[in-house]
Every structure is written in C-alpha cells, then in structure tokens.
C-alpha cells in the first residue's frame, strides 16, 4: 500500500511536534548554553567555550577521568547483561506452554517485574540481598559464601547484574514469544516430514523468524541499560567507592549534587550524542529490515 503525498498531514503532526519540542528542544538549548560556561553560584556565569569538552575527553583531568571510567563501566555492564538476557530470554520464550490457562498465567507473571517502579525494584533487591534481613544474602552467608554488596565491589556488581536480569529478561522473552507465535504450524509440519532435528528447526525456522524482534530487544536493552540510573542508585548508591557508578549516576552527582552546571551540561551533550548515534543505527537497521521483508512476504 503506497502512501499518498499530502503536505496537509503536517497539521495532524503539529500537536506532537509542539509538545515534544517544548519538552525536548527548550531544555536541550539550555544544556548547550550551560555547557559553554562556568558558574560560581549566585547565578553568575562565565564564558568557557569548549573548555569543558576538552576536559571531558582528556582522561588525565578529574572530569574526564570520571566520565571515561563511568562510560567504561557502563559499556561493560551493557555487554554483560545483553550476553545473559538475550540467550536466557530465547530459552524462556521457547519454554512457554502451548495453550491453556497456563499461557496467560506465565505472560502475566513474566510481565510483572516490568511494571514495578524502578526505585521499588531497587528496594526489593536492596532488601533481598542484605545479609541480615534478606533471603538471598542470608542464605548465601549461611552456606559459607561471604557475600556483602555494600562493602565488596564484586558482590555489588553481581547484585546489580542479577537485578537487571530479573527486571528485564522478561522483555526479551515476551518479544521472542511474539515472534515465535507468528510462525505458521505448516512450517513445523514440513520440518517434521523432512525429519529435521530439534536444533535444525530452531536454526532454520525459529531463529530467522525471531530476527526482527531480537533486533528490537537487543537495541532496546542496550539503550535502556546504557541510561540506567534508579535501580543501581537505590541498591548501591554507585558504591562501594565508585565501582557501580554508571554514566547517569555520575551525571546526576555533578549536576544536582555539586551543581557544576557547565561540566554536567557538557557531559550531557556527549552522552546524548552517543545515544543518538546508537539510535540512528537502530532506526536505519529497523527501516531496512522492514523494506527487505516485503518482497519476501510477497513470494511466500
């Protein structure tokens, strides 16, 4: 179905444009303005040009060191959770019951963590992992594993990662399940006639059909984990030391904690630029996948 060209459609888009422009463009301009200045409080601002940006990208300065370290931690975190959540999500989606009331029960339970306010997710794990009152922390210590996410950086990392797996694996699983549901039964019958093994069915039928949703899942998870703030902040507060301080946490520390507006604004812009680039790749890949799909569907 080809779309018709109609410039009047702009009138329909105008409300969205205005609302989003009001809450996106105006604040972004403020950020750009701040990023070029220095402040000593009392609303006094001094021109600083690209000074903050230079400092930001130079690891030897305080600001640059903190930014690059948190960026590294954040990238590592994103990669680890992707490596766990994507395979686990696929396995869970393949384990969904076929029919009956259990399907609805599983879907609702899977979606439950997604609907919990993020700081409550943090609170749940903060409590769950505590060695004195939390089931997990208490059990681990009882069987002789010295586990304390408040003082041990490795334990803090494990807690934050397990929490994210708990929180978001369901998203990957639900998306894969939707992809799997769109496979016609005839495909499986054909595979059975050909005597295909379980693994062959997965590789030749299920995986290709999940391509699109998996792409969405990976990119959504990458971007959301790259901006993670609330959950690790509640659990570890970025500690012990700086070991779980991700980019957003560092940014809020500088902006609202130290009120260093110039530095925070420069950091914001670079941070936003990284997200924008990833987002552009996402969009291009998605729209290309969409246009490639059509001739295939026509052939089938």
């Amino acid at each position: 179905m080809d779309k018709t060209v109609n410039q009047k459609a702009w009138f329909l888009v105008l409300p969205v444009f205005l609302v989003v422009a009001f809450s996106a463009v105006l604040p972004l301009m403020t950020v750009v303005n701040y990023s070029m200045q220095d402040t000593f409080g009392n609303n006094q601002f001094f021109w600083n040009g690209v000074g903050w940006f230079k400092e930001l990208l130079d690891p030897s300065t305080d600001l640059g060191g903190r930014f690059l370290a948190s960026l590294g931690r954040n990238l590592f975190f994103s990669l680890v959770i992707l490596a766990i959540e994507v395979p686990l999500g696929i396995v869970v989606a393949l384990s969904m019951p076929r029919d009956g009331w259990t399907v609805a029960a599983c879907l609702v339970t899977l979606a439950l963590p997604l609907l919990i306010p993020w700081n409550v997710v943090g609170t749940i794990w903060q409590i769950f992992g505590r060695p004195d009152i939390g089931l997990l922390g208490y059990t681990l210590n009882a069987i002789g594993i010295d586990y304390n996410y408040v003082s041990n950086a490795v334990d803090a990392w494990i807690t934050v990662i397990v929490m994210d797996v708990w929180h978001w694996t369901s998203l990957v699983a639900l998306l894969c399940y939707a992809g799997l549901k769109s496979i016609p039964e005839a495909y499986y019958q054909a595979a059975q006639i050909d005597g295909a093994s379980r693994w062959a069915v997965f590789k030749a039928i299920q995986l290709p059909k999940m391509n699109r949703v998996l792409l969405i899942a990976v990119l959504l998870r990458f971007m959301d984990s790259f901006m993670i703030y609330t959950e690790p902040f509640v659990v570890t507060g970025g500690g012990p030391g700086n070991s779980t301080t991700f980019v957003s946490i560092e940014l809020v520390k500088i902006a609202l904690g130290q009120f260093d507006l110039g530095k925070a604004a420069a950091l914001s812009l670079v941070y936003n630029l990284i997200i924008l680039i990833v987002c552009w790749i996402f969009y291009t890949v998605m729209t290309n996948a969409g246009s490639e799909r059509k001739p295939q569907e026509g052939a089938a």
């Binding site: 779309k3 018709t4 459609a9 946490i249 552009w280």
Partner: peptide
C-alpha cells in the same frame, strides 16, 4: 501520508524516547 520531512520527524521522535532522563533533569 507522506509529507515533507516525515522520516526525519519520526527519527527525531524516536531519539527522544531514548534520551537519558538524567540529561533533562536539571
């Protein structure tokens, strides 16, 4: 419909979905 700048507008909207909240807080 197709209209002037529709694809760019759509991308711009998507990019806001992905913008980190921490950037906008202040």
């Amino acid at each position: 419909y197709r209209f002037l700048g529709d694809k760019h507008l759509f991308f711009w909207l998507l990019s806001n979905r992905m913008a980190p909240a921490a950037v906008y807080a202040l």
